[in-house]
Write a protein that binds this DNA or RNA. Structure first.
Lengths: 348, 348
DNA sequence: TTGAAAGCGCTAACAG
DNA sequence: CTGTTAGCGCTTTCAA
């Protein structure tokens, strides 16, 4: 039998009334607090089940004056990396019983999406993190933020932030060494004998340019001219668009370093569509080492940043931040690994 | 300058005090309610920004006695379909300002994962939906539930449920005709001339067997012996395991209908690893039409169930359910499309 | 146009 | 072991 009052969810008061005890007892019984006799506890639990009582987490948090939920901000659900990060975060949080409130960034094509160097208002993360803050999460784990560092530090005054896959001075950060990963990919191509190596990056955002910078640096050190094309996003179709530009001209690159796997896959599709072979006519590297990259027939050389591990570390850092708001900011950096596959070879 | 009291988030009372008005006014001003003079409103908004005031959504819901959040339960983030459904749901909910609280099912390998017909306790969804209910969401959109119909109807007494990609009598359901999709795939293989067609399904769950049933029916009608192998999950690696069994024996199938794309991709990897060619030695169909299925070199024939559209429809249905709790259950069924690609061909 | 007061479901001292 | 009493931050009658 559901609660007597139809449609209105049962409350602790209903349970207390049914059993004939005070509301406090019910509260105690549910939290396993000491001071409730075994008999009473059973009676309470039984009645609760009978009435279909469910604790109201929001009300509990309000009364307790502290959050039981952790916010998780993901940039793009259609990118496997974020699913991996999520899995890691949950693994770390699961045993603690913290609810995870997930927020996902609005898709690209937002008004004001600006090109390299334009230096837009940088207030995108605000829109995504706002709802999490208003849901009163105790800390938000963010993968990946795109606003300028300074802006993120401002946001971090409203709620503790753990930045995943991006280092932000003064904010808990758990990330992979993007410069090293990008450098490894570019140098690999260089070692193979390529000289016309291009880079496909995404829209400009501060804090998302390390892969590009490392590419630039390696090219510069090798005395080669860098060539960078910014795709209109981070997806496969954005990669196709970038490739269209890159592969059309006269001195087509013989190798391309893509910012991530979807972009690389897009470049690959476009190249294949143009009648080029990979790696014979075009060597290609991705970044993220997604499941797809490893499929036979795709064999995309890619950089593995250990997304799952980052997730676990971020979850752990969040817990620590919750426990000690005053602790110094965590700064955890891991080394990525270049996974060699069939998409790279010496130039023809 | 942040709130005077360090670390304690500003409240409406703080704002009211700063401006010199009552809390009521602040509340009104924030919700754009009529009855606040333009001057006062501006003063309030200014002070709020200055103090770093953020509305407390949980407290507001509590006082308002109704939920402003919608729960979204996703079975598996690493499967693209769910990302597509998510995108659709958000598209529908975005303009309304409802927060989306996301829950993701615990990964497989739970205790009690039972085989076909075993009829286990069937209380898995409960564990996943519980936190959503306790967060007091107004309705939960669930993609995909795995408990028996009857159990889901019980859960639906605690909170309105919109079931996505699965029809449940008496519960709002937005789904694709799985029998039709599976039938189309199987018949396609039949028409190609295959007779030894096997089916790779996942662990048994009531409400997740329509694809299998349609396969069985088509085989039966064609006078052929069905052969079904249950993979230990719905992932690529689960597909590999199933294929190991299927491709080892003496009368190896010449075609396989997989329950979904990851499973199909797993079968493909295993087959290729065994030295078989697709489609020459083995025709293969997936289900979901993921981005990966469409990649050159993968070319997986797959059934498209319009995941994004399902998401939009589910979001819309959720909104309607919120507006009218008493309305009859929605029952929306769409027709899937078989996308023909290079992974299917006549038997050698 | 503004404010006072009650209460949402729950927790947390503090008494019995 | 059990009950009483205050709130948590916010909305919402109802008066002024």
């Amino acid at each position: 039998m559901p609660a007597a009052d139809p449609r209105r969810p049962a409350t602790q008061a209903d349970v207390a009334r049914a059993v004939g005890v005070s509301r406090t007892l019910v509260s105690f019984a549910f939290r396993g607090a000491p001071g409730v006799s075994e008999g009473t506890r059973q009676a309470i639990l039984d009645a609760a089940k009978r009435l279909g009582y469910r604790p109201n987490a929001a009300a509990a948090d309000l009364a307790r004056k502290r959050a039981s939920a952790i916010g998780l901000h993901l940039l793009d659900l259609s990118n496997e990396v974020y699913a991996d990060i999520f899995a890691g975060v949950r693994e770390a949080l699961e045993p603690t019983g913290h609810r995870i409130i997930l927020g996902v960034a609005r898709p690209p094509g937002r008004p004001g999406e600006d090109g390299p160097g334009a230096g837009g208002p940088g207030e995108w993360d605000e829109a995504d993190l706002g709802p999490l803050i208003e849901a009163r999460v105790g800390v938000v784990i963010a993968a990946t933020l795109i606003d300028p560092d300074e802006r993120v530090r401002e946001l971090a005054r409203d709620v503790p932030i753990v930045s995943v896959a991006r280092r932000i001075e003064g904010v808990d950060s758990v990330y992979s060494d993007d410069r090293a990963g990008s450098r490894a990919a570019t140098e690999h191509l260089l070692a193979l004998g390529h000289t016309r190596i291009a880079h496909v990056t995404g829209p400009y955002h501060e804090g998302r340019h390390e892969r590009r910078q490392a590419y630039d640096a390696v090219m510069h050190d090798a005395g080669l001219a860098p060539r960078v094309v910014a795709a209109p996003g981070y997806s496969l179709s954005a990669g196709r668009e970038a490739a269209r530009v890159l592969l059309a001209g006269p001195d087509r690159p013989t190798a391309i370093v893509a910012h991530n796997d979807p972009l690389a896959l897009g470049v690959r599709e476009e190249a294949l569509g143009l009648g080029l072979s990979v790696p014979e006519d075009l060597s290609l590297t991705g970044y993220d080492n997604s499941r797809t990259a490893g499929l036979t027939g795709i064999d995309l050389t890619s950089v593995d940043l250990g997304a799952h591990w980052l997730g676990v570390a971020a979850g752990t850092a969040a817990l620590e931040r919750l426990a000690d708001p005053g602790a110094p900011a965590v700064d955890l950096c891991t080394q990525p690994r270049l996974i060699l596959r069939g998409s790279t070879a010496p130039p023809a």
